[in-house]
Write a protein that binds this DNA or RNA. Structure first.
Lengths: 237, 237
DNA sequence: CGGTGTCTTGATTCTCATCAATTACTGTGG
DNA sequence: CCACAGTAATTGATGAGAATCAAGACACCG
């Protein structure tokens, strides 16, 4: 576990919205003030409903972003990996985090206070613009998801979720490089554990996905993609 | 129908993200170039999948924002009224509008080309920041909706939709000041026309909503709100 | 080698979408 | 002003899909 401070200069996450400005003079005073926070698997990074205390960037590791209904059911909204942002809502009028975030494996985070982040965005116009584009894309993605939840069958939702996980985290040696429980897939797909299991069973029987121990693999995404697209010609995001 | 050009200076929509900068010097050259577009009820403002040709602001009127699956089913993503924005995705990497927009009544729009809008945002940092906050809020709203679609019953979704419509457009003389068909409510709530009718019937019987001719009214939102909150303590948006 | 948690499968129940048929409403032209 | 057509709203019946419930298999860990 990395405990030492991470400097943006030496960071390899080219997609990070901050990294891009690591040579910017104005940015320097803020970059100096950021914190490096290591956290262990299953640890809560952001607690839903807690007062907002800044914005996070994933330096390394994997995270799930979720929120909970009072019935105890949790909805996973998205996953985040290296270079991605968490707790982005400090800017809107909210006082409390509307979402929670949990580390799926050992993770290292960079943290900026909401105040510093605000100032940095106001002082570096290009950064505000970049953030705006980022949010616009996220909004797109989220609205696509609304549509999916409204009209897809469980089978389609599960397939769609598996494809998303595959796109996001990729495969290593033929298997998805992230291990999620059936429950987590269900919470992401918007269904129940049992349904996910049933769909996965059928997909395995049909040879559309493979499994070894607890790992899942997708030999070819083509047929699966095709099935989704046939009924919903979505602009993927 | 207003045909003459609308000037931001004389516009009354205080919530408009552009109006706020109508005295800004840098903004002037862009404001001069905007177009005023009147359109009639049921007219298509944005056609889903068409090449992006700018961003719109509602000067007056009411609009629905939607997208369609190949099965013909449409999902209404949100409604927009005076001062609100349409086709906001010109900034992200998309080439085509991922959504469509249709006028629900006679509507007057202001239009900026994507290029002008981009330049304006780059040249006026505070505007980029405001837009960023706007998107962040929209994202929040959308993610709340994902959660709702995942876990609410049809009855809850319909009630939630009616409350949203009421919040957004308000009531006049005890009735909602917008008239939507059952089908439109269904497309927004993520269910079918028949289900909406059934739920509304029951709600009328229980005196929770009233109707006169085609108009719907909500005498008191308290009980309805309570029903939603009991099962899902959402941060409303 | 218990024990705990995840995974799996089957059976049951229930909600909701669909289909079909009827009624109410709106606008138009004669 | 009324007849008519076309659209929207309504109601009931049915079936499919999905959530829930229950029980057992499996793996992992002390």
């Amino acid at each position: 576990m990395i405990r030492k401070r991470i400097e943006c200069i030496s960071c390899q996450n080219e997609s990070c919205l901050i990294k891009k400005f690591c040579h910017d003079e104005v940015a320097q005073k803020f970059l100096k003030k950021k914190n490096t926070i290591p956290c262990r698997k299953t640890q809560n990074i952001i607690i839903e409903g807690a007062p907002i205390h800044g914005i996070f960037f994933v330096y390394s590791g994997k995270v799930k972003v979720l929120n909970t209904g009072i019935n105890g059911r949790e909805q996973i909204l998205r996953f985040a990996k290296d270079g991605e942002m968490l707790g982005q809502r400090g800017f809107s009028t909210h006082q409390y985090y509307p979402i929670g975030a949990v580390a799926l494996e050992d993770t290292v985070l960079c943290n900026f206070s909401t105040n510093d982040m605000r100032k940095m965005l106001q002082e570096i116009p290009q950064m505000a613009y970049d953030f705006m584009v980022f949010y616009a894309d996220e909004l797109n993605r989220s609205e696509t998801k609304v549509r999916k939840f409204a009209h897809m069958t469980v089978r389609e939702k599960v397939i769609d979720s598996l494809l998303y996980i595959n796109r996001k985290f990729g495969q290593k040696k033929g298997y998805l490089s992230i291990r999620l429980s059936r429950k987590e897939i269900a919470d992401f797909a918007g269904t129940t554990e049992e349904q996910v299991i049933r769909v996965i069973s059928v997909l395995k029987k049909d040879g559309l996905i493979i499994s070894d121990a607890k790992k899942l693999g997708i030999p070819s995404t083509d047929i699966l993609k095709q099935e989704i697209d046939e009924h919903h010609y979505f602009i993927q995001s």
